[in-house]
Simulated assay, not measured.
Amino acid sequence: MRKSKTETEETIQKLITIARRHFGEKGYADVALEEIVTEANLTRGALYHHFKNKKGLFLAVFEAVQKEVGDRVEQEAANSQDMWQQLVNGCRAFLTAAVESQNHRILLIDGPAVLGWDTFRMMDQKYSMNSLREQLQLMQEHGQLLPVSIDALTHCLSGAMNEAALWLAEYPQKPVTEIMTTLEILLEGFRQHPTNM
Rank of each mutant, 00 (worst) to 15 (best):
W117F: 08
T17Q: 05
T11Y: 11
D82W: 06
Q85V: 04
L108A: 09
G70R: 10
W84K: 00
E34F: 00
I36P: 04
H155C: 06
I179E: 05
G90L: 07
M180P: 01
I179H: 01
E34L: 00
T96F: 03
M180F: 06
L132Y: 07
L33P: 01
E10S: 10
G56V: 12
D151V: 03
R44V: 06
F62E: 07
Q102H: 09
T96C: 01
V37D: 03
I109P: 00
P112R: 14
L136E: 02
Q81I: 02
N130E: 13
I109E: 14
L42R: 14
P194K: 12
Q86K: 12
N53D: 15
S149P: 01
S4T: 15
N89D: 10
T182Y: 09
E7D: 15
G27Q: 09
T96A: 00
L15S: 11
T195N: 11
L136W: 04
R21V: 04
K55F: 05
S80Y: 03
Q192K: 15
N53K: 13
Y28K: 02
N41P: 01
L138G: 03
V31S: 00
M129Q: 14
L157E: 05
N79W: 01
D110N: 13
M197N: 14
P175E: 12
T17L: 01
V99A: 01
T11N: 14
M83D: 10
R191C: 10
T11M: 15
E34S: 02
A97P: 05
F62Y: 15
N79G: 04
A169R: 04
N89A: 07
T177F: 04
T195Y: 14
E63A: 13
H22I: 01
M197A: 14
E76F: 03
G56D: 12
Q86R: 11
V99Y: 02
C91F: 06
L95K: 06
E76C: 00
E10N: 11
K67R: 14
L138K: 13
D124I: 01
P175M: 03
N162L: 07
S128R: 11
